[in-house]
Amino acid sequence: MLGKLIKHEWKAIWKIPAILIGALLVIAVLAGLTFISPVWRSGMGGLDVLTVLVWILFYLSIIGVSMGNLLYLAIRFYQSMFTDEGYLTHTLPATSHQLLISKIMVMTVWIFLSMVGIFCSILIFGGMAILFLQPEISIWNMWEDICREFEAIGMLGLNLVSFAASIIFMLIASTVNGTMMITGSICMGQMVNKHKILGSIGAYFAINTVVQIVGMVVMLPNMLKTRFEAPIGVFQMLASIYWGMGVLCVLVSVGLYFLSEYFVRRHLNLD
């Protein structure tokens, strides 16, 4: 059942996020092409209007993809669970756990893909800038430089693998957390009878504030006791912050999941 739910959830929502990400990548290439302009080599100041416009478009597209996809996923979740579509969703022979997990998984994948898309668009833009402005720099040389830097840090006693693991853990946990913030607040918003959407938005900010405060309380002592004299200290501090934030995200997500499931199972009330 879960497999079927995921399959149909994917079919229902993949188009718009995919189009938005695709458009962003195309715009990144366009923005990168502005570096062909001879203005750059002539050494004269000032940029032409077209270049500026394309860059602004690129900047807005990044915001558009990150906010737009989140908003779209939130709206689709709300519609399929709590509007007329809910009459079909909730009469499928599935448990509330299966319904929620299928939706959360597909949303998380799309939030993650959006981040990947944005990251790639920036790489494309930066890569093209280097390619056109300083063709003498080879990407391979740059990569070797970066590796050397990391080796130098590694010699100071930093475990690079565990540092990278902390980043990856934090990224995944915060992506899941992003999904759960949306689903959790929408489910809780249903408790406000007359203004369910307003209730969801209110719940979102409430949860967000609580998480921020808890985060600060947990992180602050950790940050204060860091010894900044040693260069290694900064990395250790960053790693511990990442781990801490990741764990916090996981805890909040799990809590929000069970809260959402409870509301869907016990307090569903379609109009």
Binding site: M1, K11, A12, Q79, S80, D84, E85, G86, Y87, L88, T91, L92, P93, A94, T95
Partner: peptide, 25 residues
């Protein structure tokens, strides 16, 4: 629950379709 829903066919007062879907889908 899931067991009963597998054997109950329900026509609500409202249409519950996702509008972008095709009849075939």
């Amino acid at each position: 629950g899931p067991a009963s829903k597998a054997h109950v066919s329900y026509l609500p007062e409202r249409t519950y379709f996702q509008n972008s879907m095709k009849v075939r889908e």
